[in-house]
Amino acid sequence: MSDASKEWPLWEVFVRGKGGLSHRHVGSVHAVDGKMALEHARDTYTRRMEGVSLWVLPSAQIVASDPGDAAALFEPAEDKVYRHPTFYKIPDGITHI
């Protein structure tokens, strides 16, 4: 029988592809600690020159929003169109705005 306590824990991997970009989630690796997680992340997810920076985080430490709350969390923003610059009509000819 597999013993869950003997497994190497799962870590999520985030790669910054190029200077100036944000870190993007690319997948997971199994590792015993942060140092190993970085090595495994480097050897698994940056083989095709895909990165300048790596973040790793134990999967169990991720706090996620509940998909059941998606409507309450995210839909109210849909009708606040005044937050988008395209909501505002600026006459042609007026620049720098």
């Binding site: 597999s2 013993d3 869950a4 003997k6 497994e7 799962l10 997948g27 997971s28 690796v29 199994h30």
Partner: peptide, 11 residues
């Protein structure tokens, strides 16, 4: 890793 998201483990 993708399969593990559904509640199974690699082992």
């Amino acid at each position: 890793a993708a399969a593990e998201t559904l509640g199974t483990s690699r082992d």
